[in-house]
Simulated assay, not measured.
Amino acid sequence: MPTTPVPTRSELIEHLVLTRIAGDVATPRENNLSHYRELANGNAYFWLGLELGDRWTDEQDVLAVMAERCGVNEDPEHRHGQDTIDPALTVDALDRTAALLRKAADERRRVLVATGHPGGLLGVHAATAAALEAAGCDMVGVPLGLTADEGVVAQLAGVAMYERGASLWHTHSPRPMAEILTALPLEGEELPDLVIADHGWAGCAAQAGIETIGYADSNDPALFLGEAEGTLTLCVPLDDHVANPRFYEPMTAYLLHAAGLT
């Protein structure tokens, strides 16, 4: 559980900007636009487990959603240099996430937490999993022996992750989550009521019809499109791998406090 003092909304916004979790982020504009273009061109790697079909074939439509829901620069002529995430949108999404976490705790829901970004977001997810478990939620245990993408589906501190070569790997792949969702019924276990994740872990769960909260960066448009279409329940915009993972601790403290889970 976080020991960081709980910031106010304005203090958190200031912190997000200072640490570049939001505001002027490190991901350059050209990288963002490249990913939007790849998604629009039908490259399923950038769909993060969602089935987007032919509904997002115009890069400008993708940009418009990202400007609205993430806070990137809306100008299509801005092709290079700095891009942004609106910190107010980040905190608004955290407030909505807190309400869903509170509901999950009140109803003792079955929850699965996972990350494709263990180098950045593991602390956020682990603290969330611990808080929900302490509140009485039924936390999903990942079946043993699952493999995907030449690696292993592991679980550490209540968080499902991708392991390969004795290391936890950054992955966008939906395959590890797909393996979990396939294996649970085979072992007589129920699927989760709620998934809290990022990257392909979140997209795959949402596509399977599970209520899903996803964290996403400005260069990962698929989850924002899934939210816009109603497939993904909620998407939190943020830089998902800043210089020091402890920079996320005030955000996590704010989230769990707002959810009444501290």
Results as ranks from 00 to 15, higher is better:
E11S: 08
A104C: 08
F224M: 11
G209D: 04
E189Y: 02
H199N: 14
E59P: 01
R164E: 14
P245W: 06
M177G: 12
L181S: 07
G53K: 14
N43A: 05
E227A: 12
T27Y: 11
G145L: 03
N43G: 00
V159E: 01
A202F: 04
L101Q: 04
Y215T: 07
E227S: 03
G49V: 03
R55F: 05
A228K: 12
T4I: 02
A114R: 02
T182L: 07
T97D: 05
H172G: 08
T231M: 05
G81C: 06
E77Q: 11
W169C: 12
V142I: 15
A104Y: 01
A88D: 14
D24S: 08
A130Q: 15
G123K: 02
R79E: 11
H199F: 03
Y248N: 15
I196K: 04
L94H: 08
L184A: 05
A134D: 14
D86M: 05
A99Y: 00
H125I: 02
S10V: 05
E38S: 12
M1D: 10
E163D: 12
H78N: 02
G203L: 08
R29I: 03
P118W: 04
L232A: 07
E249P: 01
I85R: 14
C137L: 10
M66C: 09
L18F: 09
M161V: 15
T252A: 11
R96F: 05
L112T: 02
S218K: 04
M139Y: 04
A22H: 11
A134W: 09
A127I: 01
A243D: 15
D149I: 07
A126V: 09
L181V: 01
T3V: 06
L63V: 03
M161A: 04
D24P: 06
H172A: 10
H172F: 10
L146W: 03
A93C: 12
